[in-house]
Amino acid sequence: MDNWVIALIKVVFIWTWTLLIATLMTWVERRGSAMMQDRLGPNRAGPFGLFQPLADGIKLFTKEDIIPEKAHKILFSLGPILFALPAFSAYAVIPFGDKLVVNGKEIILQVADVNVGFLYVVALGAMAVYGIVLGGWGSNNKYSILGGLRSTAQLISYEVPFGLSLLAVVLVYGTFSLREISLAQQGTFLGFLPNWGIFKQPLGFILFIVTAYAEANRVPFDLPEAESEIVAGYHTEYGSMRLGLYLFGEYVNMYTLAALMVTLYFGAWHLPYIDMSKFLGPVSYGIASFLVFFLKTAFFLWLFVWVRWTVPRFRYDQVMGLGWKALIPLALVNLFITALCIQLTV
C-alpha cells in the first residue's frame, strides 16, 4: 500500500514538475532570445512577464478548434496526442535525485528504476516522430506533408548515431539502468577527474548532444517545422490546444533529453570531488541531490535555447550528409575504441 502511495506521489510530482519547467521554458526561450537579439521580450504580464505562459495557455485553450475540411479527421486529432504522450511519459525512468530517507524508509528519487530504462527512453523518443508524421500526413497540406517527410528522413539519419553513442555508454557502465549508471559516476577517475561520463566518453558526448538536438527538433535541426521554408511544417494546419500540445511536447522533450545528458555524461546528482551524502542529513541530502541534478539540467535546457538563437538551420541535404557521412562513422569508431579499451582494461 505504502509503495503505491509513494509511487503515485512521485508520478504526480514529476508530472507537475516537468509541466512547470516546460511552461517556464517557453518564457525563458522568449526572454532569452530577446536579450540575445537586443530586444526585451514579453515583459507585461506579471513581474518580468512571468505570467506570459499562463496567458498563452488560456489563449490556446479558448481558441476555436478547427479541423480542416479535407483533413483526415482521425489522424489529424491523433497527431498531437501521439507526439505529446511519449514526451510526457519518457521521464518516468530518468532519475531526478538520489534518494530520500523518511522514517527509515528509503525513497528512490526516480519514478521507475526499470532495468532497460535506457531502451525505454530511446524507444519513446523515436515514437514521437509518429506524431509529427501522422499530423503532417493527416493535415492534407503540402507544407505539412513536407514537414512530416523531413522528420522521417531526419529520423533515420540521426537515430542510428544516437543509438550508437548511447551503446558506448552502456559498454562503459555495463548496465541499462539509468540509476545504476548515475550511481557509478561517483568519485574520481584517473585520480584527478570526476568520474563523469563526459571524461570517459568525450566523443560520445559530442555525438549525443548533436543527435539530441535533432531528436528534439531544435535548431540547427528543426527541419520539420522550418518556418522560413515550409511555413510551419507539420503543424501548419493546427490551432488551439492541438498546436499547444505540439509546442509543449517539444519543451517536455527538451527537458527529458537534458536530464538524460546529465544522467549519462555529467554525473547525475554528484558534485565533483565532494560527496554530499557524507555530511548532509538523509532528508537534506535528498533535496540537495535533487537541486544539483536540476541545476545541471537547467544548464542544458539553457544550452538548447542558446544554440537555437545562435546558429542557422542546416540545409536538408546537409543534415543527411552530416548524419550518414560524419556522425555514423564517428559513432562506430567511438564504439570500437570504447570496446577495445574495456577489453584491454578488464
Partner: peptide
C-alpha cells in the same frame, strides 16, 4: 550571443522604463 545576452541582461536590471538601449 552570450556577450549580447549579458550586456542586455545587465542593462535591463536598471530602473526605469527605458532599459535595453536599443529598445
Amino acid at each position: 550571443t552570450f556577450k549580447h545576452f549579458t550586456f542586455n541582461f545587465k542593462e535591463s536590471l536598471k530602473k526605469g522604463p527605458h532599459t535595453v538601449p536599443t529598445c
